[in-house]
Design a protein around this nucleic acid. Sequence first.
DNA 1: CGCCACTAGCTATCTACATAGTTATTTGTG
DNA 2: CACAAATAACTATGTAGATAGCTAGTGGCG
Lengths: 202, 202
Amino acid sequence: MSLRYAILAILTAAPLTGYETAKRFEGSVGHVWHAPDSQIYPELRRMEAEALVEGREERWGPKGTKTRYYITESGEAAFRSWMATPLKYAPWRDVAHMQAAYFEWAEPASVRMHLEQHAAHYTEQIEQWSSQIEAIRSHEHPMIAARLERYPAEQHERIVAFKAFAYEGLIRTAQAEVDWAHSGLELLEQLDGDVPVAEAEN
Amino acid sequence: MSLRYAILAILTAAPLTGYETAKRFEGSVGHVWHAPDSQIYPELRRMEAEALVEGREERWGPKGTKTRYYITESGEAAFRSWMATPLKYAPWRDVAHMQAAYFEWAEPASVRMHLEQHAAHYTEQIEQWSSQIEAIRSHEHPMIAARLERYPAEQHERIVAFKAFAYEGLIRTAQAEVDWAHSGLELLEQLDGDVPVAEAEN
DNA sequence: CGCCACTAGCTATCTACATAGTTATTTGTG
DNA sequence: CACAAATAACTATGTAGATAGCTAGTGGCG
C-alpha cells in the first residue's frame, strides 16, 4: 500500500505520465523508495478507478497518445489522512545482520569480505544521499524546484527542511551500519589476527 | 531465499520439528528474522526434496506422528557456500523516512506523533535486543546453550562473539533511528514552537 | 469425564515485488 | 533515409510474505 502513497506524494509536486513516474522512481525518488514500472502502471490505473488520480489523454506526436495523471481532491485527502495515521512497523528481517550472527560458519576471509562490502555499500549510499541533501538545500534539485513553484513562499522553509531531515535520517542509520562493519573488522582481527582478502566464490 | 538459510542456521544448533521451528521464529530468532508457520512448513518440505534436510518421523502419543528435520551434509555445505557468497543489497524502501520527506502535508501534532512513535518503537527494539545480548554473553540463552554443547570449547568464543556482534549492529542502527526522531522533534519545535500532542485519527 | 490450552501440521487466498519480456512511436544522429 | 536511442505503455510469470483459516491429537485440571 505504501507505493500508492509514494506516488501520491510525487504527484503533489507535478502531474506525471506513467513513464515519467517510473523514471522518478529510478532516479532521485529511487534513493528513498524504489519501484519498477511493472508495478507503477497498474497501480496508477487502480488509483484512477478509485478517483485518487485523474488520467488525461495527451497527444504524443501525430499518432501516439499518453496519459498524464493529475492528483484529485480525494487523492490529496487520502494522502493527508495517511499522513495523520500511525504507521505499523513491519516485523524485522535483515539478511546482513542475520548472516553476521552465524559468521563462525564462514572463513575469516569471507567475514572480512562481507564486512567490507557492507561498509562500502552504505558508504556509497551516504554519498548519494548527501548529494541529494545539498541539491535540496540549494533548491537545485529539479523536483524541489518544481514543488516550490507550486506552493507559497512561506511554506518553502518547511518543505525543504523536512526533505533534508528525511535524508539525514537515512544517512544516520547508514553511518551506524558503516561503524558497525568497522567494529566487526576490529573484532575479526582480535579473534584471528591479520586476515587475508577473500577470493570470491562463484 | 533467505528464509531457507535462516532455517538452515538454526538447524545447525539442533534438529527441530516444523512446529518448533515456527516457535523459534516467533521467539528469540524472531528478533532478527521473522517468518510465519505458513511459510515454514512448505519451505521445510522443499528443502527435504532438495536433500538439504532430512525429515524423520517420530511417534507423538499413541496415535499422532511428527516430523523432525535434521540438517544434512549437503545442507551444511549449502549454508557454508552461502556464507562465502557476497550478499546483494536490495533497493531501498523505508516507509517512515519516505513519509517524513512529506511532513509538510501533516499537522504539526501528527508529525510529533509519528516521531514519538518512531522513537518509542526503536527504543523498545533496543531493549529487546539488549536483553538478548546479555543472555547470549552469559550463555543463559537456551539456543546458545544448546549450540555450545554441540561444538568444541575452542569455538565457543567465536560463536558468542559473532552473535553478540550481530545484535550490537541492530542496536546501533536502532539508536540512530531514535536520535533522528529526537532531532526531528527539535526541528519541529524550531519551526512551530510548542506543538500539542495529537488526537489519533481512526 | 468434560473442558481447554497446547502441540502439530497443513491449506487457501491475497498482495507486493522482482524479473523479464513485448510492441510501437518519436526524436536525434550520421 | 537508415538507424539507434529514448519515450510510452503494457503483460506474464514467479516468489515472498501476510493473513486467516482448518483439523486433530495431547495432557493437565477441576
